[in-house]
Nucleic acid binder design. Structure first.
Length: 424
RNA sequence: GGAGGGAUGGCCGAGCGGCUGAAGGCGACGGUCUUGAAAACCGUUAGGGCCCUCACGGGUUCUCGGGGGUUCGAAUCCCCCUCCCUCCGCCA
């Protein structure tokens, strides 16, 4: 959410920013409703001031004089009520529109229509040259007996899967490796609620707009999170922190749930795009300082690069273009990892910075050294998301005999095991 | 799931229809005192919105868990919701 005052003063900037992001928003409608709301507010408040003053004087009166004064108040009361309802209605309309206004992309974000406009900014590692015909993760997983998509679909529908034996163990290994790494880098490990109220979804910017992507438990009016970002970022929702408490660095290991509505037929092979996965997520809540936000953005990107480097997986970093940014993101870097089965890079991480966008919605603030209350800045990035990351691991580490070598960084989490062989 | 009790400012805690945006205490900050500090004393100490102002600041309104209602007037009365506590039941 943006400051309405900023929007009032810079409507054209907001319109341009929305166009660049390919997000439809009626700024003129918002400002018109806002204008009506402001004049109506001024009017009601004038009336209420009269009312409050009269009430005070009534307290001092007695007898007939008091009765007469009270009788006179009836009319003003009705007008206040009527106008007050109007103000409340306008405010509701305004707030609904305000939630749709996007955070403008930062100047260094490339302009572009969709992910084809993303700009590669870094490349690490060399894609492996195979001297045999490599398999993709699906074929590998099937032949090794560690990924079972067919049975997943049987009882849970498409985009569901089982990990079996060393597949399940590899998943836990990669998650624990990442969870430990991020802890060593100063992030407090957390286990978080996965079913959250609408407040948390709205606060982090997923609602309104993302309702179709979330599983909802209607009976209890809660939603399954698509990422622990929601719970971690909303952790201090409604609080005013002390500046000394910032930055807050947290990380969670959690299941994530996504309906993937509107993606029928896309990425249907294997476990690339699925309804349920596990992820270690890192979240930063810092002071209201653009330069500091940018520094943290690079830091959380580096944290995740360290994970991929430790596993020696080739990847590239892309600066996500305007058209591919979400409503709240000022800038985003994706890490795309080399996946031989796709003969290309596939997204494995997404590092976002929001400035105040989420903090305003969450009413997440801090008191600075001068005693001023300000909105925090928030950022987040994937540390590891699995089983998607099993794709590059299996595909890059496969051997001619059909086995898969386990990356050395993960072996301590698999009892020292060095390779995955066909399950007996 | 059933029966009760509760939610007040940074914290503790009083108030239980008008004199209360809120006593008192603690904490924090500023000052007096002191070579310095402590103690003592004095003072300051919530947030949001709207209007005026270049600004300093001023006016006004809202906020005592959240929403609605009663009333000329609500922290105080009524209803709904959320959360916390106690007891009973069920259960990983």
């Amino acid at each position: 959410m943006l400051d309405i005052r900023f929007i009032r003063e810079n409507p054209d900037l907001i319109k341009k920013a929305a166009t660049a992001k390919r997000i439809e928003v009626d700024v003129d409608q918002l400002l018109s409703v806002d204008n009506h709301w402001r004049s109506a507010t001024t009017e009601v408040e004038r009336l209420k001031a009269d009312q409050n003053a009269a009430s005070k004087s009534i307290a001092k009166l007695a007898g007939d004089e008091k009765k007469a004064a009270i009788a006179r108040m009836g009319e003003i009361k009705n007008r206040v009520k009527e106008l007050g309802e109007n103000v409340a209605e306008l405010e509701k309309q305004r707030d609904a529109l305000l939630l749709l206004v996007p955070q403008p992309a930062d100047p260094e974000v490339p302009e572009g229509p969709d992910d084809t406009g993303n700009v590669e900014v870094k490349r690490w590692g060399e894609p492996r040259k195979f001297d045999f015909q490599p398999l993709d993760h699906q074929a590998l997983g099937e032949s090794l007996g560690i990924i079972d998509v067919e049975r997943g679909a049987k009882l849970a529908g498409s985009r569901s899967y089982f990990l079996v034996g060393d597949g399940a163990r590899l998943e836990w290994a990669v998650l624990m490796f990442a969870f430990n790494l991020i802890r060593e880098r100063g992030f407090t490990p957390m286990i978080v609620p996965l079913l959250v109220r609408d407040e948390a979804m709205v606060g982090t910017g997923y609602f309104p707009g993302g309702e179709e992507q979330a599983y909802r438990v209607e009976k209890d009016a809660v939603n399954l999170v698509g990422t622990a970002e929601v719970s971690l970022t909303a952790y201090h929702m409604g609080e005013t922190l002390a500046e000394a408490d910032l930055p807050r660095l947290t990380a969670a290991l959690s299941p994530c749930f996504r309906r993937e509505a509107g993606t029928y037929g896309k990425d249907t092979r294997g476990i690339y795009r699925i309804h349920q996965f596990n992820k270690v997520e890192q979240v930063v809540v810092c002071r209201n300082d653009v330069e500091e936000s940018k520094r943290w953005h690079l830091k959380i990107l580096e944290n995740s690069e360290a994970v991929m480097q430790a596993m020696n997986l080739p990847y590239r970093v892309v600066n996500v273009c305007t058209g591919d940014l979400g409503r709240g993101q000022a800038a985003k870097f994706d890490i795309e990892t080399w996946m031989p089965g796709r003969n290309g890079y596939g997204e494995t991480h997404s590092a976002s910075r929001f400035y105040e966008f989420q903090a305003r919605r969450l009413n997440l603030r801090y008191r600075d050294a001068q005693g001023n209350v300000k909105f925090c800045h928030t950022l987040n990035n994937t540390v590891i998301a699995s089983p998607r990351v099993l794709i590059p691991i299996l595909e890059n580490y496969q051997n001619a005999d059909g086995t898969v070598t386990i990356p050395t960084a993960l072996r301590p989490y698999m009892g020292g095991q060095e390779r995955i062989e066909k399950r007996k």
